[in-house]
Design a protein around this nucleic acid. Structure first.
Lengths: 151, 151
DNA sequence: TTAAACTCGACTAAAAGTGTCAAGTATATT
DNA sequence: AATATACTTGACACTTTTAGTCGAGTTTAA
């Protein structure tokens, strides 16, 4: 129930590119240095992002990466999928192991996980890069104080 | 971004106990057999659940476990915490690594993760065991078709 | 031509997750 | 009091995933 560094690095990188939009291209080297990430590891992630079509690259001197689409057209979920981040609370494990049996309890618990999974998907699907750079928070949950939850 | 078997087994076990409420106590042995889980692994999880005060045990012949509270008083998040399931999308890793610097991009991405984390917490906090056994789905996201999301 | 910059695939080390095992302790029934 | 049932504890082993490295390329603008 946590996000891997792949997903986090990818988001930080994409936000960087979104902020640099309109200016020069951003090189992986610059980015890795600025954010304190491993150059080669970041390159790996960029391969996925480029293949997913959400960023483009130009080679040679003065080359680099830039967004392939406007920030409002890039969904967070697409960024995460591009780098192989699992976005599914029920993938594998119990609940998927014994498809033939499925006790009452297993089914009921499974519905709860599906509900959670749906929530997460909705959040990540509706949130675009533009929302992120505008510090937009999804207003959905009707809780004003989150401290209460830290029980 | 996925739930471990600990969390899943714990939920299945707790739903079982909730369904058996009013009847006899449930033994770990029965439960492990019925759900096809490892007996000793399940015992580990029950230790955590008992320590968290959400179930009680009676020893000796005809003993077993039962819920310590009414199903509507047991929150899913408490079950997950009891077995050590991490419920925090940003714990460790990037975003928490360089507290002193915090580039603009890192901060913005971090806010997004916090928003997601808050959503998940709200969902798991407001969902009780009673809701689960009543197949209640949280109505929050205004999406009617989830298939659309499987892009 | 060449240096900057991206591409690809294999590899390794560390961490987390998933259990197992053995030796107990407690207690309701007989 | 004996005993079978059932919970308790802690250490251990195995597997999978994640994180990050390495090196040998390919492309292209200056």
């Amino acid at each position: 129930m946590k996000v891997s560094t792949r997903g986090k690095y990818a988001m930080i990188a994409m936000v960087n590119l979104a902020l640099a939009r309109g200016g020069n291209m951003v090189t992986v080297k610059e980015l890795a240095a600025r954010e304190g990430m491993s150059l080669t590891y970041l390159e790996q992630l960029f391969v996925g992002l480029r293949k997913a079509g959400i960023l483009t690259s130009i080679r040679g001197p003065n080359g680099g990466f830039q967004l392939a689409l406007a920030p409002e057209e890039i969904r967070v979920i697409d960024i995460l999928k591009a780098v192989g981040e699992t976005v599914d609370s029920l993938k594998d494990g119990a609940g998927a192991r014994r498809p033939e049996s499925g006790s009452e309890a297993e089914v009921l618990a499974g519905l709860m996980w599906e509900g959670l999974s749906a929530h997460v998907h909705v959040y990540l699907h509706q949130m675009t890069l533009k929302d992120v750079i505008q510090r937009a928070q999804s207003p959905c949950p009707a809780f004003s104080s989150l401290e209460e939850l830290a029980t």
